[in-house]
Design a protein around this nucleic acid. Structure first.
Length: 107
DNA sequence: ATTATGACTCACA
DNA sequence: CTGTGAGCCATAA
């Protein structure tokens, strides 16, 4: 159900450890969301509780309106940013991928 | 039903 | 590096 997606997305974002970041696409994949678009939309509506600052675009940049705030928050968490871009290669949250790699019996 | 918009992504030029 | 176009999902008008 779409409620599942909604819930999963929020959980995944909540589960992002401090000092790490994830892309919309990653969250979408982990949460089995049909599209990263949905992740952004959910954050816009129900992301007030979530550490949305840890969610970046696929290239390591962040949404235009949040750019300043997000970068600052990340910087405080220990995630350095260069010219508004985070080094995903180092700070991308991939630990969850091992789990999402295989869903037990669900599919 | 169609069009426009938004915290997206990708391929291509 | 910067566009541009297409695909993508959910809402609103």
């Amino acid at each position: 159900m779409d409620e599942e997606i909604h819930e999963r997305v929020r959980d995944r974002i909540k589960a992002i450890p401090r000092g790490r970041v994830a892309t919309y696409g990653d969250i979408a994949d982990l949460a089995k969301a049909p599209s990263p678009r949905l992740v952004g939309r959910i954050l816009n509506e129900d992301g007030h509780d979530l550490p949305w600052q840890r969610v970046l675009k696929a290239d390591g940049t962040c949404a235009p309106h949040l750019r300043d705030t997000q970068l600052q928050l990340l910087h405080e968490e220990g995630v350095p940013n260069l010219d508004g871009k985070v080094d995903l290669r180092e700070y991308r949250w991939e630990d969850a991928r091992e789990k999402a790699d295989e869903e037990p019996g669900l599919w």
